[in-house]
Amino acid sequence: MSKIYLKAMEDVVQRNTDNTNRITEQAQGFVVSENAGDSLLHTSFDLTTAQSIVKHLHASFLKLAQSCVRDLDTDDKLCFLRVKTRKHEFLVSPEEAFTVTVVL
């Protein structure tokens, strides 16, 4: 990844520190990954947990959900995804270049 790209990401993180702190107060944590290569960009979790979420949720399940929505209606588009389990809830927001998951 280019240094310019990383610098831009750091700027975004810096500007949104208040938001991420507020999220972290009410949630277990969050993960931000970059869509092109499904690489971890920013997280409040430990590395193992964050990479597991990126691998299973962002790279695999989210892609399938997006293609399901396309299959059902070619004009529609997935805007938000929630996965509720017995123990946790994963809120996934797929944006143009990034994907953000908050874990409750």
Binding site: D73, D76, K77, C79, R82, V83, K84, T85
Partner: peptide, 13 residues
């Protein structure tokens, strides 16, 4: 852990 439900929010529904 076990799955309870999945919610897919799209532009329309």
């Amino acid at each position: 852990d076990e799955l309870s439900y999945v919610r897919l929010r799209t532009r329309r529904q």
